[in-house]
Amino acid sequence: MSTYQAQVQATKDPIVEAYKSGIDVTLIRENLRRTPEERLLALQQLQSFAQELRKGGREMRHRRR
């Protein structure tokens, strides 16, 4: 076992442990079916989607004024 593996396994942070129960492992499994390159391309698509959502939100707030 490497020093890094030992370090990771030796310490359990209660805050990190609390977060684990809320993580959707199915999303991770879905991602791991892809190649690393496909994962990056999916990330770029997600960034593009997030950018569109932010733009739509800005326009919606602007119309309300």
Binding site: V8, D13, I15, V16, E17, Y19, K20, I23, V25, I28, R29, L32, R33, R34, T35, P36, E38, R39
Partner: peptide
């Protein structure tokens, strides 16, 4: 914190092959 939680889950579940199924 949440990022670490996710990465540790990947590690604990033995999911992190980083090369995909293909």
């Amino acid at each position: 914190f949440e990022a670490v939680a996710e990465l540790e889950l990947i590690r604990e579940e033995g999911l992190g092959d980083s090369q995909g199924d293909k």
